[in-house]
């Protein structure tokens, strides 16, 4: 860990000014990922601006009838918030499927969006990595890539985004509220993270001086038919090999509205609108689900160790959609489906 100075932010716009004035500035909130990366010398800020002082911790209703998650609300407070549990249980489940109680108490909702990949090579300075050091090469391609991406990869990078929460936010069509030098703007969740292409050093589309202030959940009801299914190497406290956020609105047995997003398979939470469209208007049957699963994975590419994820993802999609259709998940049984 390098040496840095530490200050506390006084206001959002002041924090933005501090960051735009100095590339060495990093915001710190929960710190769970940043300090880990600093200890590995992957992140080396010269100044930390502690934003925990900013008034962004509340979870409130929006004028449109949705819910606004303050960027500094902790993952734990969000997952167990009565309104989130009641109206957005998919989000509760996804958050609780991630990390550990201790980490969820520290990690913030805004910070969750900025989690960096768990790629072994990204984390090890002894090996080349385009994300860490652009142009140095991707060691995972042709290397050990069991946990790596199968969708949206590039020749530069096959890293995955590690978040569970973000998979649910993608499925729920969340909006990210951002403040920068030029004021406030909103970013559709699907546009927040990006694919690696030839610039894997950038995980998201924000300008360097922008700060996330809130995440808005739209006023849509997926509280009955949903599933967050996470498959991993142990029952808890492990990153997803594949995870699926599935949410349906049904009329009888017909799918009226569908949401489908995957984690552990791409550089960003992988929402597939085409597959969602394949589901809409169709009967909620295994046959329908299989077609959607095949569509999601049709362009998938395995790199050796991770090739199993293609089949695993298909099966996980079918299972998650089935569970969603059956409405078998409930927020009160938080861990029932953490690893079936």
């Amino acid at each position: 860990m390098n040496s840095f100075t530490y200050t506390r932010a006084t206001a959002v716009d002041a924090a933005v000014r501090e960051k735009s004035a100095d590339d060495g500035v990093k915001f710190i909130a929960g710190g769970t990922n940043l300090l880990d990366l600093m200890k590995e010398n992957i992140e080396r800020p010269t100044r930390l601006v502690d934003i925990n002082t900013l008034p962004l911790t509340t979870i409130d209703s929006t004028p449109e009838g949705g819910l606004r998650l303050g960027a500094l609300a902790t993952n734990a407070d969000t997952a167990w918030h009565p309104e989130v549990e009641k109206r957005y249980p998919l989000l509760s489940q996804a958050i609780l499927a991630g990390a550990s109680p201790q980490l969820r108490n520290m990690a913030t909702d805004g910070g969750n969006l900025f989690q960096r990949t768990r790629c072994y090579y990204f984390y090890d300075l002894a090996t080349p990595c385009n994300k860490r050091e652009p142009g140095s090469g991707c060691s995972a391609i042709g290397g050990y890539n069991r946990i790596h991406a199968i969708l949206g990869t590039s020749e530069s990078c096959i890293a995955t985004h590690p978040s569970d929460m973000c998979v649910a936010l993608a499925a729920l069509n969340a909006t990210v509220r951002v403040t920068g030098k030029n004021g406030e703007r909103t970013v559709q969740f699907a546009d927040f993270h990006r694919l690696p292409e030839d610039q894997p050093q950038f995980d998201n589309t924000l300008a360097p001086d922008e700060i996330v202030t809130a995440i808005d959940l739209p006023n849509e009801d997926f509280s009955q038919n949903f599933s967050y299914l996470k498959l991993r190497d142990r029952t808890s406290y492990a990153f997803a090999l594949v995870s699926v956020a599935a949410a349906l609105q049904l009329e009888g047995n017909t799918i009226k509205e569908a949401r489908l997003a995957l984690g552990g398979v791409a550089h960003k939470p992988w929402r597939d609108s085409a597959a969602e469209n394949l589901l809409k208007g169709q009967p909620a049957t295994e046959e329908t689900f299989r077609r959607a699963a095949a569509a999601v994975l049709q362009d998938a590419k395995g790199y050796g160790h991770n090739t199993f994820k293609i089949e695993l993802a298909k099966r996980a999609i079918v299972r998650a959609l089935k569970q969603a259709a059956e409405g078998t998940q409930h927020a009160t049984e938080a861990f029932k489906n953490s690893n079936p």
Binding site: R118, Y120, S139, G143, R234, Y237, A238
Partner: peptide, 28 residues
């Protein structure tokens, strides 16, 4: 779950941490 995986290209164990070298947790 246990295995320390070597990338033979580098001759280096790649999952050298408790996040990726899995041992059971309570739920297992």
């Amino acid at each position: 779950m246990e295995e320390t995986v070597m990338d033979h290209g580098f001759g280096r164990y790649m999952n050298h941490n408790l996040s990726e070298y899995h041992v059971p947790v309570c739920a297992d």
